[in-house]
Simulated assay, not measured.
Amino acid sequence: MQSLSRIALAASLAVVSMASQAADWSDTSIGYRYGSKFAEPFGSTEIHKNIFNLTHVSGYSYGTNFFNVDLLMSDKSDPSGVTVSDVNGERVATPSHTGAQEAYVVYRHTLDLAKVTGKDLSFSVVKNIGLTAGFDWNAKNDVGYNSRKRMLVAGPTFMFDVPGFLNVSLLQLWESNAPSGYSSFSNDSFAKPRYSYDAHPMLTAAWSIPVPVGLPISFEGFANFIVAKGKNEFGNQTAPETNIDMQLMYDVGTLWNTPKKFKVGFEYQYWKNKFGNSYKGGNDGAFAKTPMIRAEYHF
């Protein structure tokens, strides 16, 4: 997994470098966040995670690019593997004492329809309309599932006339996965071919809005509301998913006359029916409520 993380990071840096060279404007940052209340479906609800991220946003003549890679490192409450031993002739699996690692990549491109058509597309509180397309990609080495998610997205984006920005998109999702892990239910390893869920829509919002309190504080984040995606690869019905991640960030750089360089703040994530797994029936790990601390440096 460490080599996979290095590959993901190297590829991310290459993408950021190419996008920056072609951009009219760009903002690239590295960040860190930490929380002790992360949860995973069918797993613990008290997982500690250290998360490092690289984020790039840029604009060119006809639109914008957004790219983010998270490297997530869990503690042993979300183990990375198992040790199999023979006990009285029976194979017994013992979770590893090392935590799982995950790389999660998101890319979105939004085509600015006003710039493409040369027309004013504003109406009411909407100042512009775009077309968004992109992908999600992940890999994780946890003991129970070993996710290999691949997802394509496409749909319209509405840009609202607010201080800062607020973009709301209605995207169609085409998602597949190919888990390969160790089943704690059967004490044996498993590997499944790539499985495609039903195509399904997501209503998503992203925002960064200054808070009018006389200090350089901004309210930032995203929210995803995803409908059920049919049956999963194990034949179980999926559930509608809500993932809200919001932050209050203080621009510390203003103290040294370098605004928009270094930010610190608090973050909270509310994730119900995580990855489409229902939290009901004792699956508490599918409902995460996670406070975090966060810091980011902008180049």
Rank of each mutant, 00 (worst) to 15 (best):
F42K: 11
S44T: 01
S44G: 01
T45G: 03
E46F: 04
H48L: 11
H48P: 08
K49H: 11
N50P: 03
I51S: 12
I51Y: 11
I51G: 12
I51E: 14
F52K: 07
N53L: 05
L54D: 02
S58W: 05
Y60R: 15
S61E: 15
G63W: 04
G63M: 04
G63D: 03
N65S: 11
N65Q: 13
F66C: 03
F67N: 02
F67S: 04
F67W: 09
V69G: 08
L72Y: 10
S74H: 02
D75V: 06
K76E: 14
K76M: 10
K76C: 06
S77K: 14
D78A: 10
D78S: 11
P79R: 01
P79K: 01
S80A: 12
G81L: 05
G81V: 07
G81K: 03
G81R: 02
V84Y: 00
V84D: 01
V87K: 00
N88Y: 07
N88Q: 10
G89P: 02
G89C: 00
E90K: 06
E90S: 04
R91H: 05
R91S: 14
A93K: 02
A93I: 01
T94G: 04
T94S: 13
T94H: 06
T94M: 06
P95F: 00
P95K: 00
S96I: 10
H97F: 08
H97P: 13
H97R: 12
T98P: 08
T98A: 14
T98M: 13
G99V: 06
A100W: 09
A100I: 10
Q101P: 01
E102D: 12
Y104W: 10
R108Q: 12
R108S: 08
T110N: 09
L111G: 05
L113V: 06
A114P: 10
K115C: 01
K119Q: 14
K119D: 12
K119R: 15
K119A: 14
S124N: 11
S124V: 10
K127F: 09
K127M: 07
K127C: 07
K127T: 07
N128I: 10
T132D: 09
G134M: 07
F135R: 06
D136R: 06
D136E: 13
W137T: 08
N138Q: 04
